[in-house]
């Protein structure tokens, strides 16, 4: 068992179960499902009512899923660093562009300074000023 980390924008870093094989990171199928919501079924990769057919014979190795091939099958960008045991899977630009092109303010949930979660839409129907700042 190798210590692996899975990264995404919404959740930050989370531990993952699986192993490395050369430059590949192979995540246990159950771990991939709990991390991403996608489950490998006979009809393909499925989440909710959506299934994406997969014809890549190298997607799985025994009971594990190749992280890079998983992302490719779903059309998502990925960075896999097997030496460091890290996988980051993101959203395709087309999904991020949609709300921006439509002029919609995407909802988000992030931690406040005291650790409690805050959801942007909880501010309701009023004008809102969103300020992004960093001390660098």
């Amino acid at each position: 068992m190798t210590a692996l980390t899975f990264l995404d924008a919404e959740h930050g870093n989370r531990p993952a179960s699986g192993r490395t094989d050369g430059d590949r990171v192979l995540l246990d199928a159950s771990s991939m499902t709990s991390l991403t919501g996608w489950e490998l079924k006979p009809e393909g990769l499925c989440r909710g009512d959506v299934c994406v057919p997969v014809r890549d014979p190298e997607l799985t190795v025994d009971d594990a899923i190749d992280a890079a091939r998983f992302a490719a099958a779903l059309g998502r960008p990925a960075v896999v660093d097997a030496a460091a045991g890290v996988v980051a899977i993101g959203e395709p630009s087309s999904e991020r562009r949609g709300p921006i092109e439509a002029g919609l303010a995407p909802d988000f949930t992030l931690p406040q300074l005291d650790g409690r979660s805050f959801t942007f839409s909880s501010l309701g129907k009023r004008k809102k000023l969103l300020l992004a700042w960093s001390s660098w």
Binding site: E91, A105, F108, L110, K128, L130, L131, A132
Partner: peptide
């Protein structure tokens, strides 16, 4: 994780968005 940068297209700070 710079989620807002990704969601709103923020490339620098201080950046302000009116909603």
């Amino acid at each position: 994780e710079l989620l807002l940068g990704e969601l709103y297209g923020i490339y620098n700070v201080p950046t302000v968005i009116w909603v």
